[in-house]
Design a protein around this nucleic acid. Structure first.
Lengths: 212, 212
DNA sequence: TCGCTCATGTAATGCGTTACATGATTGG
DNA sequence: CCAATCATGTAACGCATTACATGAGCGA
């Protein structure tokens, strides 16, 4: 139902800010406002730009700028309408928490029940990186960076999200430093069973290896 | 540096909860606790399970359960250790806001400056889906669902995130219903320039088409 | 018996990353 | 002059999705 994003839309969008080369698009993806929301590697940027040019959505101009030569792309009329149409399309709902740390945490109780320290380490690393991002958000690297009303709202969202995450991490670490707590709900006893299954698998493997 | 997730880890994790078939794994991915964090289609589940079996990380047992035949997988000792090792690996930091709605919003000012209503529609749709999720989180579909300490912490995180998102959407819609605001920062005047570029492209295209 | 859910699978396809290759320019 | 940055590109590869195919039980 709802449409997804291919690299092309992101490229059109970034170029809509100002005419740009593939190289500078990559820079924006790494440190500009887009960097919080999307990313692309050179391996997709350059071929996709060629595609967009062939499709007539952007035009290329070779620019000799202080010795250096860059290929600067700008939107054509078709490019602008294409971007406009895409913006109107219903965005697809994202996996709300797609996150490797949370995925690991989800399985922690079955596979690493007693090792709470490693998880605390993961959480601390996460908090450090998140704090970095928050700082960057407060004092953007790029003093030429522009922010319109919409981007301002997004920045507000980002600040809120990141701060909330830090608070949650704090509370979580505090709890993890305390004593392990029993399951909140376990009608079928799967958690004790998991422990048992793990032990059984270990015994079976030990037996198979045979007594040395 | 930090390792990423392939389907295999997620599969090992889900099986760690209890021995399962490919079909029931898919069900968990769609409505269980994992559904907030990860997803997989049949197209990856079945082939990956075969791989894991060949690698000796899981074992398959044909189960005749009330007429129906299912292939139930469980972790081997090697599967458990493999899962254990993966949990210890440092998770990679995710794009903090990877989100199609936010990506569109980022470009709104350059390409759809005056159409605030469509964006409000996007935001309302988002809020509706998010409210659904929040409800599901409060009253899980699966009455047999189990929640251990770690999963409880994740649920807390999810609740916090979703509630915060709803609040932000409310505030944002309110602001968008008001008058447009000028850019917060625009040292190089890129936003007025973008409007001008868009108009110029339209004029050029009109001219090219020729006067009718 | 007809359609739905359960259940498993495969082939084509899409899409993006990684790794590699190349070369000009600039600053120390 | 040498290393880093600017700048553009391509080929191989990984990995997951989509679409398709198949078949057995179940409930009306």
């Amino acid at each position: 139902m709802s449409a997804s994003v291919s690299a092309k839309e992101a490229l059109l969008g970034v170029i809509s800010f100002s005419p740009q080369s593939g190289y500078s698009i990559k820079a924006e993806m790494e440190s500009g406002g887009v960097s919080y929301i999307w990313d692309l590697s050179f391996g997709s940027i350059y071929p996709r730009l060629k595609d967009l040019e062939r499709e007539g959505l952007i035009t290329a101009v070779e620019v000799r700028d202080e010795g250096r030569v860059r290929t600067v792309y700008d939107l054509t009329h078709q490019g602008w309408s294409s971007l406009r149409r895409w913006l109107a399309e219903k965005p697809s709902y994202p996996l709300p928490l797609r996150d490797e740390l949370l995925l690991r945490m989800l399985f922690w109780g079955t596979a690493r029940p007693d090792d709470r320290q490693t998880l605390i380490g993961h959480l601390r690393d996460r908090a450090a990186k998140t704090r970095e991002l928050l700082d960057r958000l407060r004092t953007p690297l790029d003093e030429n960076g522009a922010t319109d009303e919409f981007q301002g709202l997004i920045e507000e969202y980002a600040r809120m999200r990141l701060k909330a995450e830090l608070e949650w991490i704090d509370k979580t670490i505090t709890q993890l430093q305390g004593a392990p707590r029993p399951p909140l709900r376990d009608p079928r006893g799967i958690f004790p069973k998991a422990t048992e299954r793990r032990h059984a698998a270990a015994r079976a493997a030990g037996k198979e290896a045979g007594p040395s």
